[in-house]
């Protein structure tokens, strides 16, 4: 049980590092998905100790569904950004500053 929590903690940290360092918007989306998966791992680990594991697993199904929606909308933003600025490099998104 604790081994799964340790694993998901590590994965969350890796995902966070990815989101923080990558300049490419698609890699940020990737890092975000890694963090979400770490969360799902935790949900399942705790569902095994809960009185009704089936309910815990429905949470993970919902979380997978929401993560898929989030990836879809995130990609829509990236494509809109690509069409407007012809780059997916987040550091170039500074037009608000001007």
């Amino acid at each position: 049980m604790t081994r799964f929590l340790v694993l998901s903690g590590l994965l969350l940290a890796i995902g966070a590092y990815g989101v923080m360092t990558r300049r490419n918007a698609i890699c940020t989306l990737l890092g975000l998905e890694i963090m979400l998966n770490a969360g799902n791992l935790n949900l399942i680990a705790f569902s095994r100790v809960s009185p009704s594991p089936a309910v815990g697993q429905t949470f993970v199904l919902f979380s997978i569904g929401i993560a898929a929606c989030e990836a879809a909308v995130g990609l829509a933003l990236i494509l809109a950004m690509w069409r407007r600025y012809r780059t997916v490099d987040i550091d170039k998104l500074v037009s608000l500053k001007e």
Binding site: L61, I64, G65, A68, C69, A71, A72, L75, A76
Partner: peptide, 13 residues
Amino acid sequence: ALLFVIFDVETVL
């Protein structure tokens, strides 16, 4: 691709 992902989630549920 967007509609595919949305229907994917629906199919699983």
